[in-house]
Write a protein that binds this DNA or RNA. Structure first.
Lengths: 265, 265
DNA sequence: CGAGGCTGTGAAAATCCTGTGAACGCGGCT
DNA sequence: AGCCGCGTTCACAGGATTTTCACAGCCTCG
């Protein structure tokens, strides 16, 4: 089921370690793999870790001093979804067992090969992402739209939009990357799961379907903007602004052939 | 009397290894910890592993010969919930990385201390046993349905539904996740315990059986809703136009008080 | 201001998905 | 052995969803 390439998803990790050489090498590999990595040479408050929305944390407890066990335990309890990997110097079996028991997911011994560290972090976070429910299920609200991954649907005040799977996934992707212009190829790759054939218009067609449904249920907003020669950008924009005199445009007039193209910037 | 201390849940593991000394020691510890352990000195057909409903598998790929990688990969793909731990002699970084990438959860080097092996197995299977056992045996009432896990049966006003085991588990899963759309793959994974083969229609068939039985005993309600291209969603809905019955507040479910999803015809 | 490439549209054609009924094995039981 | 209950697998029919096309209306650039 693994698509091509070793790393299928982008992973967010943090490293707490003073060994700058190791960290540097790791950072390089992480970049190649498309992971985002942040580094600290000292303990990071748990609450900050929460805010970072990490998939994995690689840590050398040696930098923590006496509080090490306590710190690890707190992290493990507070962030059950986080893959917690220890990488440290000499340790006894008893220490490793203690660490693993109190919530550490993997324990490596220095010196450790960065590639192996990456692989272990990946393995640990793979295990954690399975069986998670909430992570993907968090509803997303933009404009008067609410996107709910747990139902594969989007809602506006008046009710559901009734989207097909593809439509939903396209909308979800666009909304997640709200504000960014996404190229067609990128969109296709993400939603369809494989490379887009040259000349394929599927993305355009689905954008149209989405625009239709969005407009029907939320006429006073504009969501998907075209960037000529590139792709699309999602951004809820209220069309209201002129004084309140509009004599109720009364829809059904199908003579609105085109959408305004946003080429700005 | 449950063994107090470190091991809070009973874990089922299997060991595939020829080192009988190591296995013996491990078996002893496992017994003390209250785990159930089965042992084999040679490869075990994946389907047998499925039947064993394991939490963890400790394996020395050396006993597998040439097929080792293939075997590991197959196991990992087929049993995503299984904690797969390798324990073998000398190995290269590249081998470890390869193993971890293709689905192995942890990789130890022999000789390894049995206590550490236990701790690592526990760590990799922790994820799946955690956060899931709270309301395990609690009866669940939805619509005019009552689901009793302690009996493996569901009841409506007029009596029991007479469900087979699979039917019950499917219903239970759906009801627990009420309101959420569950993908076929996830349903299969949860109820059957291993990965769904492409093209398998079992879930559909069981949904039909459930719908039939539900309709026979509770004709005025609709419970299982189809989401085209995705899977199913459980949500009791009265078919009668509710004269004045409040639209079932169905609180508690989510924090978002929102409309009910209308997909069905 | 015109050519040429891009995007929006509507609809037909091609695919894919789900509901069903029924045949098939596999054990367990009598 | 023969008879069930249960879970799996098949093949089909009816729909729902995606793709593909052919055109027409824009946008850029020269």
């Amino acid at each position: 089921m693994r698509p091509v390439g070793a790393y299928t998803v982008s992973i967010r990790i943090a490293v707490i370690d003073t060994d700058s050489g190791f960290v540097t090498v790791l950072a390089k590999r992480a970049e190649v793999a498309g992971w985002s990595l942040s580094h600290s040479a000292g303990p990071v408050p748990p609450r900050d870790l929460v805010a970072m929305k990490l998939n994995g944390l690689l840590i050398d407890p040696a930098v923590l001093g006496d509080e090490a066990w306590d710190y690890l335990e707190r992290i493990a309890a507070m962030l059950p979804e986080l893959g917690l990997v220890v990488c440290t110097g000499r340790s006894t079996v008893a220490q490793r067992v203690r660490g693993l028991r109190l919530g550490v997911d993997d324990w490596m011994t220095k010196p450790c090969h960065p590639e192996e560290a990456m692989a272990r972090i990946e393995a640990v976070s793979r295990r954690h992402t399975r069986g998670r429910r909430e992570a993907e299920g968090a509803p997303l609200t933009v404009g008067e739209l609410e996107i709910r991954p747990d139902r594969f649907q989007a809602f506006v005040g008046s009710g559901p939009l009734v989207l097909t799977r593809r439509e939903f996934e396209l909308l979800h992707l666009l909304a997640e990357e709200r504000g960014h212009v996404l190229e067609r190829e990128r969109i296709y790759q993400q939603v369809w799961g494989y490379a887009m054939a040259h000349g394929d218009r599927s993305v355009d067609v689905f954008v149209r379907k989405l625009r239709q449904k969005l407009e029907k249920r939320s006429p006073s907003w504009s969501y998907i903007h075209t960037h000529f020669g590139i792709g699309y950008r999602f951004e809820p924009e209220s069309l209201e602004s002129p004084p309140e005199t509009a004599p109720a445009p009364l829809a059904e007039d199908v003579s609105q052939p085109f959408h305004k193209l946003a080429t700005s910037k």
